[in-house]
C-alpha cells in the first residue's frame, strides 16, 4: 500500500483555481519534497491531505484512508504528524510540559524526554514557550509533530528561520525518522534541503505538477547539456577558439555541450599548445535550482541568477 495517493486533485477558491488536477504517489518510507513558488498550490494540497480543507474533485488516500471523511479523522490524526506554519502552542507552559501534553493525546507516543533531546531542546526543557527564540519554537513544533510516533509526517517549510547547525540537526531527525519507516512529505524553498533529503521531488507551478523525479534526474538534469566556462584569454578573437562559444563577452566565455569530454580535450589541448592558461575554468551540470527555476518560469529573465545566488548563500552560510 502506498502511503499517499493523490489523483486528479482540484480545489478552487472563488475564481482562482489553486489546485488544478494534481497527481502523485508516495511509497512508505520515502521522503518527498514538494517544491514550487508561493501560490503554486503546495499549502492547499498539504492542507487537503491533512484534512484541514475540503477538495472539489479528485481522489486522495492517506495511509489508505480518505482525509476528507470526518469519520476517519481521529484514526488519521493518531498516525499522521504535522508541522505547520501558522500554528502555535500555549505560551505559558514549559517546553517539556508542552510535549508531554501532546503525548497524552496519542495512543502510542514516543518518550517525551527522548523527543525533547532529539530536537535539541534538552537544555530548554524547563523554559516557558514564550521565552523561546523563533527557531527554538520551530524545533518545538517539530517535536510536537513526531511525539505521536507518526507513520506519515507532513513538514511545511520545517527549517525556515533555523540557523545552519539547527538545519543540519533537523535533517538528521528527518533522516532517522525515514530510517525507522516513517514517510515524510515536506515543502521547502531551499533547494539544498530538497537535494539533501528527498528521495523524490514533485515540482508544482500554478496548481499543476510540472515535473517529478529524483533530485538527480528531475527535469532532465542527468541528460542536460554540460556548461563549460572560463575567463576569455587576452587578445583572443572568438574565431581563434577551437570550440563554438554559446556566449562570449570581453571577460568570459561560456559554452554548452553534449559531450564535455571531447570539448574539454580540444579546449585544453589548444590552450597548452598556445601556452595560454584558461583561468577560472569551470564545468557545471545544471543545479537543482537551475532546473527548478526553468521549470517554474522564473529563470527566463535572469539565466545567471541561480548559480550566483547559490554561491552567495554558501558563502553566507560559511560566514555564519
Amino acid at each position: 500500500m502506498s502511503a499517499l495517493v493523490v489523483d486528479g486533485l482540484r480545489k478552487r477558491y472563488r475564481d482562482h483555481e489553486a489546485v488544478a488536477g494534481i497527481g502523485f504517489t508516495v511509497e512508505q518510507g520515502e521522503i518527498v519534497a514538494l517544491l514550487g513558488p508561493n501560490g503554486a498550490g503546495k499549502t492547499t494540497t498539504l492542507e487537503i491531505l491533512e484534512g484541514f480543507r475540503s477538495r472539489d474533485a479528485g481522489r486522495v488516500e492517506v495511509l489508505g484512508r480518505d482525509p476528507g471523511d470526518r469519520a476517519e479523522q481521529r484514526w488519521l490524526r493518531e498516525r499522521v504528524g504535522l508541522v505547520l506554519q501558522d500554528i502555535a502552542v500555549e505560551p505559558h507552559l514549559r517546553v517539556r510540559e508542552t510535549v508531554a501534553r501532546s503525548a497524552g493525546y496519542y495512543p502510542a507516543p514516543r518518550d517525551v524526554d527522548e523527543v525533547v533531546e532529539l530536537v535539541g531542546l534538552a537544555e530548554k526543557r524547563d523554559a516557558k514557550v514564550k521565552d523561546l527564540s523563533g527557531g527554538q519554537k520551530r524545533r518545538l513544533d517539530l517535536a510536537l509533530g513526531v511525539i505521536g510516533d507518526p507513520k506519515l509526517l507532513f513538514l511545511d517549510e520545517p527549517t525556515t528561520g533555523f540557523d545552519p547547525t539547527a538545519r543540519r540537526g533537523a535533517w538528521e531527525v528527518v533522516r532517522s525518522l525515514r530510517d525507522l519507516g516513517t514517510t515524510v512529505v515536506l515543502t521547502t524553498h531551499y533547494m539544498d534541503e530538497a537535494q539533501a533529503l528527498a528521495d523524490q521531488i514533485v515540482v508544482l507551478n500554478a496548481g499543476r505538477v510540472v515535473a517529478q523525479g529524483t533530485p538527480e534526474t528531475i527535469g532532465g538534469r542527468d541528460t542536460a547539456r554540460t556548461r563549460i566556462r572560463f575567463a576569455r584569454p587576452d587578445g583572443v578573437a572568438p574565431e581563434e577558439l577551437p570550440v563554438v562559444p554559446t556566449e562570449i563577452d570581453e571577460t568570459n566565455v561560456t559554452l554548452e555541450v553534449d559531450d564535455a569530454t571531447e570539448a574539454l580535450h580540444r579546449l585544453t589541448g589548444w590552450a597548452l599548445a598556445r601556452g595560454t592558461s584558461l583561468h577560472r575554468l569551470a564545468v557545471e551540470q545544471p543545479t537543482l535550482e537551475d532546473v527548478y527555476l526553468s521549470l517554474t518560469g522564473d529563470a527566463a529573465g535572469r539565466p545567471e541568477a541561480a548559480p550566483t545566488s547559490r554561491r552567495q548563500r554558501r558563502r553566507n552560510r560559511r560566514a555564519a
Binding site: E78, V89, Y105, P107
Partner: peptide, 14 residues
C-alpha cells in the same frame, strides 16, 4: 488567531 487551536486540531484530541 494565534494558531493554538489549529495545532490542537492536528492532534487526535477529540
Amino acid at each position: 488567531q494565534t494558531g493554538v487551536l489549529k495545532r490542537l486540531h492536528a492532534t487526535p484530541l477529540p
